[in-house]
Design a protein around this nucleic acid. Structure first.
Length: 271
DNA sequence: CCGGACGCCTGTCGGC
DNA sequence: TGCCGACAGGCGTCCG
């Protein structure tokens, strides 16, 4: 998916087109996403003015009282703004219609994404209640990550991709941050030193900010609200670069399977 | 509580 | 050329 930089890029692109506008309704072409799209979505949204568009981890939240629409893009989801008469293609599952004549269109070939609606005044949505701190906010620092890693037998990469530990980090940015911090992805989380925890937090912050500046990473599916890809793809240091030279020492980047996914690292720079 | 396996989907790519 | 398995940005659920 879309990890934090891609979701935040989408949020920033959408905000000027949503906030201050009003929903006129919705069109659900295929409600079968990760969870069923609410059948009464159109009625819930109609005539509701949009007050804010926020992000928590990889979740987007559209605040239109009395409700909040919660969106998750899964592995292959994207959101685009199109005019109301733009023909829908395959995998264009949901349209949220705006009074501007534009439509917020959810496209998701693999359908691992989801769309929820819940009352703003009620309890927070269950998907949001157990999320760890935002990686770009002050609550996430070396002391926190070191503390969170104590006694954990999982790999440091797994720990950092665990949304209960820190929100918004997926496979790409976990690999990239571990590269910058000089830590091998298979290291046991419980054996990470205080200094390494600090380095990893700094690396995560740095790579997330860099990716944000370039509109995120596009491997195949991700596009921004206007259809442009993310340009951080060309700046990836380790991810997807198996066999190619390490940008620092030129040793070939190694690819290993880890929990059913690929990890990439430099065997010389990372210990 | 923790950690690992599984399942949910479709599309693409490489090897035979 | 065609088929088939592996793999792809995620994550809730279940089981030991």
């Amino acid at each position: 998916m879309p990890e934090l930089p891609e979701v935040e890029t989408t949020r920033r692109g959408l905000a000027p087109h949503l906030v201050g506008h009003t929903f006129t309704g919705a069109r659900v072409r295929n409600p079968r996403l990760r969870w069923p799209v609410p059948p009464d979505l159109a009625q819930r949204l109609a005539d509701r003015p949009i007050e804010a568009l926020t992000r928590r981890g990889k979740y987007l939240l559209i605040h239109a009282p009395p409700g909040i629409t919660l969106l998750h893009l899964g592995m292959s989801g994207s959101l685009r703004l199109v005019t109301h008469d733009t023909p829908a293609g395959p995998h264009d599952h949901v349209d949220l219609c705006l009074d501007s004549g534009r439509v917020l269109r959810l496209h998701d070939p693999r359908r691992f994404g989801s769309l929820h609606w819940f009352e703003a005044a009620g309890p927070p949505h269950p998907l949001l209640t157990r999320l760890g701190p935002e990686p770009l906010e002050p609550g996430f620092d070396g002391a926190y990550l070191h503390q969170a890693s104590r006694g954990r037998r999982v790999s440091i990469k797994s720990l950092v991709m665990n949304a209960r530990v820190v929100a918004g980090i997926g496979n790409i940015y976990a690999n990239e941050a571990l590269f910058l911090a000089g830590i091998r992805p298979r290291r046991a989380a419980g054996r990470i030193t205080q200094r390494e925890a600090g380095d990893l937090v700094a690396a995560l912050r740095r790579v997330l900010k860099e990716a944000l500046e370039q509109g995120g990473t596009t491997l195949r599916d991700f596009v921004r609200e206007d259809g442009r890809p993310g340009y951080f793809t060309q700046s990836l240091r380790a991810y997807g670069r198996a066999g190619r030279p390490c940008p620092v020492c030129h040793t070939p980047i190694r690819q290993i399977p880890q929990q059913g996914r690929s990890s990439y690292y430099c065997p010389r720079c990372q210990r």
